[in-house]
Design a protein around this nucleic acid. Sequence first.
DNA 1: ATGAAAGCGCTAACAC
DNA 2: GTGTTAGCGCTTTCAT
Lengths: 348, 348
Amino acid sequence: MVTLESLLDNMPKKVNIKMIASELGVSPSTVSKALKDSHEISKETRKKIKAFAKFYNYKPNSLALSLRNQKTMVIGIIIPDIVHHFFSRVISGIESIANHKDYSLMICISKDSYEKEVQNVEMLTNGSVDGLLVSVAKETLEKENFEHFNQLIEQEFPLVFFDRVPPHSQVDKVIIDDIAGGYNATKHLIEKGCKKLAILTTPSHVTVGVKRETGFLKAIEEFGLPMNASFDIRIDEKFDIKKQIKELFSQNEIPDGIFAVNETYAAIAMKLVQEKGLHVPKDIAIIGFTDGLISKFTSPTLTTIAQHGQTMGAKATDLLLELIFQKDKKRSPKTTVISTNVVEREST
Amino acid sequence: MVTLESLLDNMPKKVNIKMIASELGVSPSTVSKALKDSHEISKETRKKIKAFAKFYNYKPNSLALSLRNQKTMVIGIIIPDIVHHFFSRVISGIESIANHKDYSLMICISKDSYEKEVQNVEMLTNGSVDGLLVSVAKETLEKENFEHFNQLIEQEFPLVFFDRVPPHSQVDKVIIDDIAGGYNATKHLIEKGCKKLAILTTPSHVTVGVKRETGFLKAIEEFGLPMNASFDIRIDEKFDIKKQIKELFSQNEIPDGIFAVNETYAAIAMKLVQEKGLHVPKDIAIIGFTDGLISKFTSPTLTTIAQHGQTMGAKATDLLLELIFQKDKKRSPKTTVISTNVVEREST
DNA sequence: ATGAAAGCGCTAACAC
DNA sequence: GTGTTAGCGCTTTCAT
């Protein structure tokens, strides 16, 4: 009689159902059924097969399963960048939900390049994933070319955008309430007594920057404050950020409150204010938009608008799984809005 | 005659070779060959098939390809955490190399849990990836149970560890020269005139903490400085970090130089020193071990040991691809060491 | 120049 | 209770 141990040497690195079957003198289907505890198979055979499988550390090949079931249990993610606290929080949120539902993550990085994004989309939608979560590349937003996504939507491929989304509404997406965030940030500064407000924002093709500015302007107007055009700095990250922010302080009049649409701009502005010998928040108050780490460690610590990246990732995944689950059912695109809140620290 | 356009409506969402074949009245193998420009197929047929495929946006199913070729072109990654600047830099390094060689990334997060890590390993090695990059979970390091990895190594599954690696040497790995880093950090403090050095480190099961401390002690000894046992703080992140660091200043004698084995500890220590009314670096100099963002934005900015996470990711991937490429060849485990360097800022 | 058949690993409907 | 067969989408050897 052949003992399990005596076989060890003959077995190759990775066993599959066929090998188990031939080794045990049964058919592959018997093995397959036995391994899923099918009552079609006798208790004895089941026991024997399972023991054997366990001993040889059999694990079903997921590729074969995916192909057969037309389901990969993988979610694809395309993000502009991963070395970015906000995005890593989003991924963490995605992972927590996905993992809970036995989904794995396939992550691609577009580096904000249109071409890479197109490649990523093609790669991921060739059968490797069941659905796609995307934060659109800056270059794509600039070009306004969303053809690669439209194709997916036509094919009814499960697709959810988050944070940086295409401007048209007919897609599923999860966004931050950037307008309200900008508004609240500005209101906070005004309530702290600021009268001459400046904004550090992004070029106009970056949707989130524009929206935050919209909220900013809304608050300015509502509270009847003047808007100084030279206090509106649009930073182009292709050039030196510090230099661009510096222009704010090279004028006759300087602001007494600064709203930065992200954490980095806020932190740099703070350094510059201090270098000028001015005090934060006494001379100039600063508030940033962020989900980062820096804010807690600047001196003074930075008041910010919390973005809740983790929540965004979780909600986007919930939505995507819904799409995957009811793939055939007709439904209309859904937008989930994540609200923000002011986290008051020392800079205001 | 059937025009391409007239077919559009009848074609389902996603076309495959079989559909193209039947639609064009040829065999699947002809289509397959034509699409790869095989000279076996006549120029005309090739042209026709390619045009058709392009029109219907045919893309080969990667699952089927992987199954057939026994090659997924995917690299699996298991990391303890993603919301961590160092790890996201490592991933970025991995991605840059992987992408260049047409590999995709499947990322799992162990959350420093042994059980999750085991699950991740099982999931990823069931055929979904060609190789694995792993930074080991804290809990696994504590338990010292590496059975799940040993199995892979026995099966000669391509596997490379990075940063947090198993203590035994018989594995491929990429590590930071933590001892030298700790030594250089300490030497830097000493050169700046510090005489009473303290260290903020991790519990003893975290390898990197231990190694950095080894370097620290080596420098202390070499320069003939005294080591005060109460200046050796081992922080357990299960409890309040701030409180633990505070103990350093609640004694009769306080240090004049602090070496923190990571950025967060350094930044918190700096805040505490300042809260005590002391000056950094005049009263107490501080140096941190890191690859983070915080250092640039503290006041004063923080002198650190740069870890080069990106480089680590890139080197690990190079090594892994080597393993994948020469899978059968016998070779002995290789260790790559990434050197660090002091980035001097204002805190020392 | 084209097609049939087998097989990558697995499962499920359908024999027996 | 067990086995045969077909098929998920693709490629490749071997006919024709």
